[in-house]
Amino acid sequence: MYGSTNLSEEEAKRMNTTVEDPEKLEAFESRIARGEKIEPQDWMPVEYSKQLIRMIEQHAHSEIVGALPEGTWITRAPNFRRKLALIAKVQDEIGHGQLLYSAAETLGKTREEMLNDLLSGKSKYSNVFNYPALTWADIAVIGFLVDGAAIVNQVINSKGSYGPYCRALERICYEESFHLKQGHDNVVYLATGTKHQRAILQDAINRWYRPLLHFFGPPDKQSAHSEKLMKWKVKLASNDDMRNQFLDQYVPKIWELDITFPDPNLKKNDDGIWEFSDPDWNEFKRVINGDGPCNAERIAVRKFAEEAGRWVRQALMNPSEKYVVPLA
């Protein structure tokens, strides 16, 4: 998922033991319960700010790293119209990264610290971007289904309690709807095209199916819960609920094109819950811990960008200016 709110056991324990000023905590919690937003200058529990930084930062890294598999296809887009759309989409993703880094910065972690943590491997980004884009059909599937999954996640998170994150997400969701539409357009063109076009689309769907199921994180019964994160409106829906919403919205749109998913057990039950085979959660863990097909490549490309751009940033730097945390 984009901004993971899955806690390690140790973190879950700490969340329940950190002691906060009860009066301030009550004012904070009742503000959230009234549906009001929290702004950067407000008092907030240490764990609230910490979890938000982690979540928004991961989300920002995902936007930046997510642009890498697509970016390399710009020069190989099949026609000028597709090339224009892909350039616009990649630029949007970087722009979203900027918006999200800004939102995380309001909580006191600087952008440079976040970028350093991405390069050192200390902070994560979405698992889904550790898989390769082998053919043009991968670009179609990423545009439609990966962005579709991201939108499910982001629309839900935009109802959260932290003002700057919500504002960034509203803008992002608006722009992502273009990504989704152009991705769908791309998928439909391939699906209604030649035999070869249908074949590469089917192949791409086969390879992206499991990473897409992994996207929303481990099943609820396997992940550490935090009542507090729900109460504080940092986490707004469970992993399983989001995954189900995604399947409900997108599986029929692939099936109607007579394209299949590589899972004979994928079906919707009468109670509206989708069933699917175990997508190999060990693979998910392996890839998150660095052993995916593209982890090393993604970080190497980021390192290259950091190194190659250093002299420009240094030339621009005005040492007499003092950095202050952004306002909103």
Binding site: S102, R111, E112, L115, A300, K303, E307, E321, P326
Partner: peptide, 14 residues
């Protein structure tokens, strides 16, 4: 991939 990247600690202002 084994390149060590120098950490950036200076900020542009906002």
């Amino acid at each position: 991939p084994s390149t060590e990247v120098e950490k950036t600690n200076s900020h542009l202002i906002t």
